[in-house]
Nucleic acid binder design. Structure first.
Length: 438
RNA sequence: GCGGCCAUAGCUCAGUUGGUUAGAGCACAAGAUUGUGGAUCUUGGGGUCGCGGGUUCGAGCCCCGUUGGCCGCCCCA
């Protein structure tokens, strides 16, 4: 069709597509509001340096970036985190703490398309600023989970894998590794699930083979799946102040989630490291239980980022859920409801005279907020009733010559297939009483 | 950035060893049907066969290129 098509990876939302998207956004919004988060928004186009500052120069290959007519290097936003850090940083001194903010926005990444990944997508972003303790993570992970369960998903469908970059750091340092080596090992941990032993190759190339005793401990640590296992491993590592402080945070976090009834969703899983990005504490990722889809959501603590982007020191944690994989999951589980737009009232019109008589009532019903449809052309009655049913309307109002001669309109209940006359003056109240159930 | 598969109507697809004017179902529209229900029947509109080149008397079909899509790798903030 035509000479022009959408750019690769971009999406068009026909009405039925937009209805599904809006359904997702509506429940996300309701959920975030229930948790006391405030919604914000910000520019789609940002200075390129904002992302260079956060992620380094390589990031540019993954961005829609260009030079604008004023010579500024700009980029379509690939994520919300740097932006929200700037917003909060600007007013950090005057905002009430904790700062709980969310947004539903579109993002753009210049990447190869795959199932559940395109070049444009929407995310629910939720962040808490100003709260350094695991109380923030409790709130965030609870919101994350309720953002799933609001749609009917259960712990049979989704789970959240919970890990801790700080704990890894402290643990590896306790094993005697310096910071560059710790980072290299974390890189291997991140890829171990997918690559197996090959994940340690980059480390070996840089620093020589990893000591076998240490590697065994790393692999054992990586496989820990419970708080008890964590306690054991840390005790074996000789405890230490920082490690026991982390353990206390873990207990608080898991205890809080358990008290909220969310334990069935959450698993200790130190195999999750979330790249090498900017995370500084707890990190978590959500997946479908069957493991058929890409990650549904990801997040964690990033206490240094606001300051790194020029703001004040401000502890922060947050997560994002993408709409593509999430919608796929809802479809797969049959949790995307049929969302055909339905009329409330369909007006059946006899002829030109009756049309004009009907218009006044149509206008006032619409003014009252009812969704009212009528045929734009003169159409046989039989067809109009068919159209009335197909419109999804609850009732049909019949403006025929016989009725109008008697000063009435016929009101037909399309569900019960019953009808009665109402006086022309009382059409609006008759319609209202049908919808309010008298 | 790399690899595999694919591309015919809005959707799902058929299309004979290369042969005349490219078909079906669904969807849409009109009629049967000018006062009452999702049906049925009839009819209709809708195609640069993704695009460009090549081979051939002749290409939807074969060859090359290209664009786009799906799937995977890299990446995934």
């Amino acid at each position: 069709m035509g000479a022009f098509q959408t750019l690769p990876g971009f999406r068009e939302f026909f009405p039925e597509d937009l209805a599904r998207r809006n359904h997702v956004f509506r429940l996300w919004r309701r959920t975030a509001n229930a948790f006391g988060f405030s919604e914000y928004d910000a520019p789609v186009l940002e200075p390129l340096d904002l992302y260079r500052a956060k992620s380094g120069d390589e990031i540019e290959t993954q961005l829609f970036s260009f030079t604008d007519k004023g010579g500024r290097e700009v980029a379509l936003r690939p994520e919300m985190t740097p932006t929200v850090c700037r917003l909060v940083g600007e007013r950090a001194g005057t905002l009430k703490r904790p700062i709980k903010w969310y947004s539903i926005a579109e993002f753009y990444r210049y990447e190869r398309m795959q199932k559940g990944r395109g070049r444009c997508f929407f995310q629910l972003n939720a962040d808490i600023f100003g709260e350094p303790g695991p109380e923030a993570e409790i709130e965030l992970i609870a919101l994350l989970i309720q953002s799933f369960t609001a749609f009917g998903l259960t712990a049979e469908d989704v789970w959240v894998r919970l890990s801790d970059r700080n704990l890894w750091f402290f643990y590896l340092e306790a094993l005697g590794l310096d910071e560059p080596r710790v980072r290299a090992v974390l890189g291997a941990v991140d890829k171990f699930e997918r690559m197996g032993d090959d994940a340690f190759k980059p480390y070996a190339e840089k620093f020589g083979p990893l000591d076998e005793a240490i590697k065994a401990k790393v692999l054992a640590f990586l496989q820990i799946k419970s708080l008890a296992g964590l306690e054991q491993a840390l005790a074996a590592a000789g405890g230490g102040e920082r490690l026991s402080a982390r353990l206390a945070d873990w207990k608080k976090l898991l205890g809080g989630l358990d008290a909220m009834g969310l334990s069935p969703f959450v698993t200790v899983d130190l195999g999750v490291v979330r790249g090498l990005a900017y995370y500084t504490g707890f990190v978590f990722e959500a997946f479908d239980r069957k493991g058929e889809l890409r990650a549904l959501a990801g997040g964690g603590r990033y206490d240094d980022l606001v300051a790194k982007l020029g703001g004040p020191e401000l502890p922060a944690a947050g997560f994002a859920i993408g709409d593509m994989t999430f919608s796929l999951l809802l479809e797969q589980r049959g949790l995307m409801p049929p969302l055909a737009p339905a009329a409330d009232v369909y007006v059946v019109i006899g002829g030109q005279k009756e049309r004009e008589a009907a218009f006044a009532d149509i206008a006032s019903l619409r003014g009252a907020g009812y969704r009212v449809e009528y045929p734009m052309k003169e159409v046989a009655f039989g067809k109009q009733f068919k159209a009335a049913v197909e419109s999804g309307a609850r009732i049909a109002l019949i403006y025929g010559s016989e009725e109008l001669a008697r000063g009435v309109v016929k009101l037909r209940d399309l569900r019960s297939r019953t009808e009665h006359d109402v006086s022309k003056a009382e059409v609006a109240s008759a319609v209202r009483s049908v919808f309010t159930g008298q």
